[in-house]
Design a protein around this nucleic acid. Sequence first.
DNA 1: CGGTCGTATTGAACACGTTCAAAGGAGGCG
DNA 2: CGCCTCCTTTGAACGTGTTCAATACGACCG
Lengths: 228, 228
Amino acid sequence: MAETVPVEPPSRGEQTRALILDTALRLFEEQGYEGTTMRAIAAEAGVSVGNAYYYFDSKEQLIQAFYGRNAQRHVQVAGSAMRDERDLSSRLRAVLRGWVDINERYHEFAGSFFKHAADGRSPLSPFSRESVPAREAVTSIFRDVVEGSDAKIAPALRAELPNLLWLYQMGLVLYWVHDRSPGTAKTYELIDRTVPLVVRAIALSRFRVLRGLLDDTLELVGSLTGKP
Amino acid sequence: MAETVPVEPPSRGEQTRALILDTALRLFEEQGYEGTTMRAIAAEAGVSVGNAYYYFDSKEQLIQAFYGRNAQRHVQVAGSAMRDERDLSSRLRAVLRGWVDINERYHEFAGSFFKHAADGRSPLSPFSRESVPAREAVTSIFRDVVEGSDAKIAPALRAELPNLLWLYQMGLVLYWVHDRSPGTAKTYELIDRTVPLVVRAIALSRFRVLRGLLDDTLELVGSLTGKP
DNA sequence: CGGTCGTATTGAACACGTTCAAAGGAGGCG
DNA sequence: CGCCTCCTTTGAACGTGTTCAATACGACCG
């Protein structure tokens, strides 16, 4: 993991690739996804449209890069937001609000972006094989949320909880995409209202009456995430 | 509801509209959504492409019609599947499996279809204003599932349960879209395994420890579905 | 220096969804 | 019939994402 790899200077191809990507992401932010044409990206980057397709199979694949960059930002922001906080509710709330903060400026074109998430055959789907690294990066955030808290959680649940919280965030994202309130205030409100419920539900998991249901559910979730 | 309306013979426009729609849906089934061009639909129907756009604002809107037709089928199938069954699990299971049965042949192109569901600005989204009638039709199925069963359910939950079950089905659909197992066997399996869990969770709603959490959750759901 | 091979780059061409000004029809009225 | 009006229909044209054969570049070798 920490081996010293000889740092090659970026080849000509990698430079062009980075140039195209940076230009594309900038134009996406300025003019939205649908409002940005491949010709415009190529022209702004000073290359031909064919050249852009030499490095990216499709316009959608440029989104993949956008997604990855924002996930990376989320990891950073979440880390610092949780540093001095041990309460599970506070940690979870900070991480979720952090995601909304980061993505707020892209809210307008995020719809035409997340819609690919529901496409089973698209590599852009968060469930696809191509998204495994990005998904695990985000899941590790939630693992940190749980592990770094002082909450008492049943071990069986503890192991699967990060995946469940990731799913919970997916639901929030879906709400956020449809949220047209100014500043996506309703999404923030939804977070503030659901986080305590989620934490309470987690706490309830230790009760006797629930253990049967919980165990069966966890076994199901485990068998699904294991070999989908 | 049962008023006698004078039955006008379908005008020329309505005939053309129906012709285009039937042709489109047939081609969608035969060649998939992306594989069917507007030009092909027009040619097959014997009209011009401009004429198709006179009746349908976009290719997506043809999907809306497809969605509506299948929802209608689901209502029929669900009704007969539940006729002689009072057990909540059996009723719920029959309705959900019925949906998968109906949509099985469209599974391959359903992905490029349901992806619009996640787009906040698309009228095709099941959360959009345009989808309210279709959504209420499906929700009424689940109301029937609950009301026609012999299960004892807390009144507060009973009122909101159809909406929650609709949401549950949305989750199953999302899984189904990504399900590549032969005959979408894994989706059927998921239904068979989750239905008992859902029903047990409903039954648990009467326990003391859960009432607080349940009431808060229901209030939240109510405020969301009320004025989104 | 010339030649060769793999990488980069080009831009015209293609098929698609969509638009729109123009034309066609069908019924009503004088 | 002639004229008008409204609904219907047409097909060329536009801008888009994408493809591909052709070309240019650059490093290495003899």
